[in-house]
């Protein structure tokens, strides 16, 4: 459908983008207001912008520590998931094994598992091995989410790599493992990278396991840490909006740089080519 875009269309676009972005715009505008101004009025712009809320957000709670924790946990999760998943996805798409449909079915089913159904045994397990309040204590349960996701997306990407290259490698006497390392992996690298971003975002956003397993403040991740800014008596909206802006910035950067890849990864699992 190659309709040309008229002026009405662009007006619609601007309104649409404005509505989608409105919460961010408002939260950003709030974060630069002096804390006293937040509760009195609904003015969009403040006369004297201040960074006081940002100072409070960082000083009242260990926000930077939360971000570091999230970063470490998400990176470890991504590396482990991609490592296992790329090997499995290669075999699933390229090697002549039986029960491919069944195995993919199991993996898809695993990715749809409700976390609440597995959290109590996982909690018991992590407690028993003494990994409460540690990075590995989160990385292990995150495999439940990340590994099926990674295998699912990677197998789509691997499927798209032309067979001819592989066949000629085989003729030249390469072993399957050599073919994987020298031919498939370099060709699949963009897909692997995309999968990595999606797994990273999924791990960064996880809430239920992080809430339950890492209960000490120094081990909390961003989503849990942010949700604890509200105290019982007051809700420091200034701190909260500043903290929100701070934790959203890395994601905005990630999205801006990799948006094409993210869209490719997201849609790969759902559309037949």
């Amino acid at each position: 459908m190659n309709k040309r875009a008229g002026i009405g269309f662009y007006i619609f676009l601007v309104v649409f983008v404005f509505f989608v972005m409105f919460p961010f715009i408002w939260v950003f505008l709030t974060s630069i207001k002096p804390p006293g101004e937040i509760f009195n009025n609904f003015n969009w712009f403040t006369a004297d912008p201040s960074l006081a809320s940002y100072e409070n957000a960082i000083n009242n709670r260990p926000l930077l520590r939360y971000m570091w924790n999230s970063f470490v946990v998400s990176t470890l999760t991504t590396l482990i998931a991609i490592g296992f998943a790329s090997i499995a996805a290669y075999a699933l798409t390229r090697l002549p094994i039986k029960f491919k449909g069944l195995i993919l079915g199991i993996i898809l089913a695993a990715s749809m598992f409700p976390q609440i159904a597995i959290i109590s045994p996982i909690f018991n397990f992590i407690t028993a091995v003494g990994l409460r309040n540690s990075y590995m204590g989160l990385v292990i349960p995150y495999i439940t989410v990340s590994l099926p996701l990674a295998i699912w997306i990677l197998s789509t990407f691997f499927q798209k790599i032309p067979w001819e290259l592989e066949e000629s490698a085989k003729l030249d006497g390469a072993t399957p493992f050599q073919t994987f390392r020298k031919i498939i992996f370099p060709l699949a690298a963009p897909g692997v990278f995309t999968t990595g971003i999606l797994v990273f975002i999924a791990a960064w956003n996880e809430y239920l396991f992080a809430l339950t397993i890492n209960t000490e403040d120094v081990w909390r991740t961003v989503p849990v840490g942010i949700s604890l800014y509200q105290s019982q008596f007051t809700i420091p909206w200034g701190d909260i909006s500043a903290a929100t802006v701070l934790v959203t910035i890395p994601i905005v950067i990630l999205v801006l740089i990799f948006q094409r890849r993210i869209v490719a990864g997201l849609t790969s699992g759902s559309v037949k080519e």
């Binding site: 983008v17 989608v20 972005m21 961010f24 975002i201 960064w204 956003n205 809430y207 961003v222 989503p223 849990v224 942010i226 949700s227 929100t244 934790v247 959203t248 994601i251 905005v252 990630l254 999205v255 948006q259 993210i262 869209v263």
Partner: peptide
């Protein structure tokens, strides 16, 4: 702009 709401943590 469409991806950012999807990408931020639900808790945020």
């Amino acid at each position: 702009s469409v991806l950012i709401p999807w990408a931020i943590p639900t808790a945020v």
